[in-house]
Simulated scan of single mutants.
Amino acid sequence: MLTVGLFFLAFNTLEAVVEALLFGERLEHWLDLLFMVIWMAYAGATVWYCAAYNLAGEGS
């Protein structure tokens, strides 16, 4: 869970920096929620598959 939270923090930081560089200010829009859900799903899947890979490697 900590890893997913760190992914989320990194995404929010990256998004804020990109918006500030492109538009000069941080934008608040409804797509932020969609981006957050997609990013959290990606982070969760990454952690899940990494754990499954590590467990499979230890068993053999």
Results as ranks from 00 to 15, higher is better:
F8I: 12
L21I: 09
Y53S: 12
A51K: 14
L31K: 05
W48F: 10
A43C: 02
V47Y: 08
L27V: 05
F7N: 00
F8Q: 13
V18D: 08
A56N: 15
A16G: 03
L31A: 09
M1Q: 02
L22S: 03
V17E: 08
M1T: 01
A10K: 05
A45E: 14
T13S: 09
L55W: 04
Y49N: 06
W39K: 12
L21W: 03
V17N: 04
S60Q: 15
A16V: 06
E28F: 14
A43N: 03
F23G: 05
A16Q: 06
A56Y: 13
M40C: 06
C50E: 15
E25F: 11
C50K: 11
L22D: 07
W48Y: 09
V17F: 14
F23N: 00
F7P: 04
F11L: 09
H29S: 08
D32K: 02
F8R: 14
A45N: 11
E58P: 13
E19M: 01
R26G: 00
A43H: 01
L55T: 04
E25H: 08
N54K: 10
H29T: 05
L22F: 08
M40R: 01
L9Q: 00
L6V: 13
V37A: 14
R26A: 03
S60D: 12
G5T: 02
L2A: 14
V18N: 08
M36E: 13
A20I: 15
Y42L: 10
R26M: 01
A20R: 15
L33C: 06
L14T: 11
S60I: 15
L55P: 04
G57D: 14
C50S: 13
